[in-house]
């Protein structure tokens, strides 16, 4: 409730936070990121610069677990631009747990050939500047990116986000009918729209799959949506 008050929105709003942090930030990738304004809340959907992002991690705990890979792609003007796609494996310390490898299919060898975390996050922030981040189930991406920024730059930037899981959940909640949480999984939601199976648990693949899902969700609503209706 508090969140919707205009005053709190102004104090806590991501644009206000960005400006405040920009003053404190020292030169480097984070400052560059903070220097670009975010789109306004009344921006129509087709004009929102969106970066669909997905992380593969060694677990769910942003402090104890490691970021393994990052994938992202631009979504703008109702189009997913494959030319902008970016995918990188991160060379983090420590060995991978076997049960995890079966999910993300990134082996120790691949990981060891990956790029350092600082370089990958810098690339990601460069792509993310001025954009809204699109994810499916925002907790992982938000916490891991915050954690990485804290480790690398000593502060975590505001991250305006759209979450396709939340978009879907709001719709299901409105129906007032009980549903199985598994219906909110990316692959299940995609199947609802008749989308082809995608090769899941690859960061770029999931990012593209999430972007496709958002296109379908926005199109389904029909009306002209603005960022305000979509943002978390």
């Amino acid at each position: 409730m508090l969140n919707h008050h205009p005053l709190t929105r102004w104090i806590l709003g991501y644009e206000a936070q960005r400006k405040r942090m920009l003053k404190k930030a020292s030169h480097g990738p984070l400052r560059d990121f903070l220097a670009v304004p975010f789109p306004a809340l009344n921006t129509p959907f087709e004009q929102i610069p969106i970066l669909a992002v997905d992380f593969e991690t060694t677990g769910l705990d942003a402090i104890a677990d490691k970021l393994l890979s990052v994938g992202c792609v631009d979504l703008f003007h109702h189009q997913i631009k494959l030319g902008s796609s970016y995918h990188e494996i991160i060379n983090s310390k420590g060995r991978l747990k076997a049960d995890n490898v079966t999910i993300h299919q990134i082996t120790d060898d691949q990981k060891d050939q990956g790029k350092p975390l600082a370089e990958v996050i810098e690339q990601l922030l460069k792509r993310l500047a001025g954009k809204v981040m699109l994810v499916h189930f925002s907790r992982i991406e938000r916490q891991f990116l915050r954690q990485a920024c804290l480790e690398l730059y000593g502060m975590a930037p505001p991250l305006p986000m759209i979450d396709t899981l939340v978009v879907a959940k709001k719709r299901l909640d409105k129906r007032d009918v009980a549903y199985d949480p598994s219906e909110l999984r990316l692959s299940a939601l995609r199947a609802n729209y008749g989308f082809p199976d995608h090769y899941a648990h690859n960061a770029l693949n999931d990012a593209i799959a999430t972007a496709e899902l958002l296109l379908a969700q926005v199109n389904e609503r029909g009306e002209n949506m603005t960022l305000r209706q979509l943002i978390l």
Binding site: H78, Q79, K81, L82, E212, L215
Partner: peptide, 11 residues
């Protein structure tokens, strides 16, 4: 060629 693809969704 794939790098030149833009994915669109049309109702």
């Amino acid at each position: 060629i794939v790098k030149e693809i833009n994915i669109c969704y049309v109702r």
